[in-house]
Simulated scan of single mutants.
Amino acid sequence: MISEYEKKEAINQADDIASLLINTNNGSLFYKVISNFVEKSCPTNRLEIKHPNNSKEMEYNLAELIKYMVSVAAEKNPPKMYTTGQLAKYFGVSITTINNWINENRFIGVKRNTINEKIKISENTKWRSPNGELMSVREIVDLWKQNNIRRNVSPQEEISEVENVIKYFESKYGGTYEKIFENKVDLNDEEQRDKEEWKYLLKRKLK
């Protein structure tokens, strides 16, 4: 945790740090790396990423970026983290689709170290839409909440949607979850993802 004193010290030195970085041989590279990182990693609409015309503008903008990074790092409330199952609900897709998006780097900066590694994704993570637009996970969740309030989806309707996906899996594999996956060990990647999603849906149905 960054203390209030450390936050003030870091912000006070941001101008000097920016000047040192910009006046190195790779000053423009440092600016490009930091500005791209902030743009891809932080929630939208909190900072305007500017494109400088000269080194002075670059130095000033870099100082502002550093101050912004310090402010985010010092926030007391950590960002919310979401499982692939939760994201499937908010994006309105299957867990398999969420996993495919992770593999395709549609969630910027999110990677699996192993095939079946269970990961959580921060609300600050940027998601790349099919048209190339970047949106934060937080924005997607907020949109889902707004739409859900307008739709006023009943618990019965939500259960019905879950049951339809379960029936899809039963049809795909020709049996119930217990019959197909209870004792099956050697699973390929698709089967492993379907197993996790199917299990998650069965738990949701029981709630």
Rank of each mutant, 00 (worst) to 15 (best):
Y68L: 06
T84A: 04
V137P: 11
N25M: 10
S154H: 03
E133Y: 01
R46P: 01
N36E: 14
I108K: 08
E170R: 04
E59W: 05
S71Q: 12
K80P: 03
T24E: 15
N183F: 05
I108V: 15
V110P: 07
T114M: 02
H51I: 15
S94P: 12
N61P: 06
S41V: 08
E57F: 01
E39N: 09
Y82C: 09
E190I: 06
K126Q: 09
E4S: 10
V33E: 13
E139M: 11
K184R: 14
V72F: 00
R150I: 15
Y5F: 08
T176V: 01
K76V: 13
N26M: 10
W144M: 01
E163M: 06
I95A: 09
D189S: 12
E196F: 04
S136H: 03
T125P: 02
F91A: 01
V38D: 07
K172H: 09
V33P: 02
A63I: 04
A18V: 02
P43M: 08
E123Y: 07
E123Q: 13
K111D: 09
N103V: 07
I98V: 12
L21T: 03
I22T: 00
V185R: 14
G109I: 09
W127M: 06
E39G: 01
D16K: 05
S129N: 04
N77E: 05
N152P: 05
G132A: 07
P52N: 04
E161P: 02
P43I: 15
N148T: 04
K118F: 04
L201I: 11
A10G: 04
I95C: 08
G85T: 04
E133T: 14
T125Q: 11
I149E: 13
W101N: 10
L29N: 14
E190N: 14
T97P: 05
I140C: 11
S28E: 13
F37H: 12
I166M: 03
S136Y: 01
K7C: 08
G132C: 09
S129V: 00
K56P: 05
N103Y: 05
R128L: 13
H51D: 11
Y5I: 14
K207W: 00
K118H: 00
S154M: 07
E48G: 08
E170C: 02
E64V: 15
N105V: 03
D189Q: 12
N183A: 10
E196M: 08
Y68F: 15
V70M: 01
E6D: 12
K40L: 13
N116L: 00
I22C: 10
F169Q: 12
N12A: 14
F30H: 13
R150V: 15
I149T: 14
T83C: 05
I34Y: 05
Q13K: 15
N99M: 08
T176F: 01
L134D: 00
S35P: 03
L202H: 06
K8L: 12
E48S: 13
E170F: 01
S71R: 13
A18W: 00
E182R: 15
Q13G: 10
M1W: 13
K118E: 11
R150H: 11
I2D: 01
P130E: 00
T44E: 03
